[in-house]
């Protein structure tokens, strides 16, 4: 995935059973953002792979004051890339569960 300067990782082990997963996001390279992020904290949140979109979560992060609105696309892309990887792994590792 492209290096967006925003890192997103699983915050829990993915067993492929739940549609909702915990993710953790933090800024690795502030210079890649247009606005100044709130701080250097890691933001943990749950994401429903079936019902939600990365754009929704990114928008909620902007509205919650974590990022400047001009960075909504880069945050959404960072989440989208990680979610795509999780779904890719699920389809290959747990196809029967799916």
């Amino acid at each position: 995935a492209e290096d967006t300067g925003v890192r997103v990782e699983l915050a829990e082990e993915d067993h492929g059973r739940k549609s909702s997963i915990a993710l953790r996001l933090w800024v690795e390279d502030p210079k890649k953002l247009k606005g100044k992020p709130k701080d250097n904290g890691a933001i943990e949140f749950t994401f429903d792979l079936e019902k939600e979109t990365p754009d929704d979560v990114a928008q909620e992060m902007i509205e919650s004051g974590f990022f400047h609105e001009s960075d909504v696309k880069i945050v959404a892309k960072s989440i989208r890339d990680r979610v795509a990887l999780i779904q890719w792994r699920r389809e290959r590792i747990w196809p029967i569960v799916q």
Binding site: E28, P30, K31, D39, N40, G41, A42, E44, E63
Partner: peptide, 27 residues
């Protein structure tokens, strides 16, 4: 470590914790 919780009006909960130094890229 200190945790901060932010709840968005749509109901989603964000929990903020310090990022370990080892995970921050040097700039």
């Amino acid at each position: 470590s200190s945790l901060t919780q932010v709840v968005h009006s749509a109901g989603r909960r964000f929990i903020v914790s310090p990022v370990p130094e080892s995970r921050l890229r040097e700039s």
